[in-house]
């Protein structure tokens, strides 16, 4: 169990009567990037959102099955969702910085988890920005609004923000699909950098991106996990016909 950052067992997600994710079991290794691919509406984003219990926020959504981090099943009603989300960071498709300064965007999380000391906060802000490769660009304007940054910078700010609470796992939901190619390249570079420390699970529509940055790939179709294997193998010699059809662009 230890080598896995996170494991899902028989995870199903229902939106009302509709089953969006069907009994998916997946193990995500530490210090690796796992890509979730599949056509729109296949349940990959829904699956991702259930990993840090974000689906709790949606009316009528029900998640069954188990999610293990180490020895703890976090898909349990008694799980402390607040401290869970501290351990699992999340980055969205559209950058969503708070309407606050760059500094405050990052200090927001740590402050709520008990860091009050100004010096410590300064340090966390600098470290997080450095890790997100944003420090050089922002160190002279930490107290300017986070919204004054460009789209790509905002996205890196959001990554820095989620790193700041010291998670072990980072979920990314199409983190580069709203960005231009240059910013995308920077985000991908950053992801490759970050995987040395974190377990990264990324949903992407961009097959090349999945091939470039991930060690493992999982292919979803209509709520089912079709195939899960090493990325290299998936893209060159997939087991299932659906996978090869999707990857070669015959549908989806």
């Amino acid at each position: 169990m230890q080598q896995y950052g996170l494991s899902a067992k028989d995870l199903s997600v229902y939106y009302g009567p509709k089953q969006a994710v069907k009994n998916v079991s997946l193990d995500f290794a530490n210090k690796q990037v796992t890509a979730l691919i599949g056509p729109s509406g296949c349940g990959k984003s829904t699956f991702l959102r259930s990993l840090n219990r974000m689906n709790d926020l949606i009316d009528g959504a029900k998640v069954t099955g188990e999610i293990w981090i180490g020895e703890e099943n976090i898909n349990h009603p008694k799980t402390d969702v607040v401290s869970l989300r501290q351990r699992i960071g999340m980055v969205w498709q559209r950058p969503n910085p708070f309407h606050k300064s760059i500094y405050e965007n990052i200090a927001f999380g740590p402050r709520y988890h008990g860091v009050k000391n100004k010096k410590q906060l300064d340090e966390i802000v600098e470290q997080s920005l450095r890790k997100a490769a944003l420090w050089e660009e922002t160190k002279d304007r930490l107290h300017k609004s986070g919204l004054s940054l460009s789209g790509g910078q905002q996205q890196r700010l959001c990554i820095a923000r989620s790193i700041a609470v010291k998670p072990s796992i980072i979920l990314m939901d199409e983190p580069a699909s709203a960005l231009d190619p240059v910013s995308t390249a920077k985000i991908e570079e950053l992801i490759t950098e970050l995987k040395q420390e974190y377990c990264i699970i990324i949903v992407t529509h961009n097959m090349h991106q999945a091939a470039r940055i991930s060690e493992k790939t999982a292919f979803f179709l209509m709520g089912d996990l079709i195939e899960y294997d090493e990325t290299d193998k998936m893209f060159t010699d997939p087991e299932k016909k659906e996978t090869s059809d999707y990857i070669s662009g015959r549908f989806g």
Binding site: N52, M54, L57, V82, S83, L84, R85, Q86, G89, M90, W92, R94, N96, P97, F98, H99, F108, G109, Y112, H113, C158, R161, S162, V165
Partner: peptide
């Protein structure tokens, strides 16, 4: 923007 609240929840707020 709806992402704003989600972003805050995801940080454990």
């Amino acid at each position: 923007p709806s992402g704003l609240k989600e972003g805050s929840y995801a940080l454990g707020a």
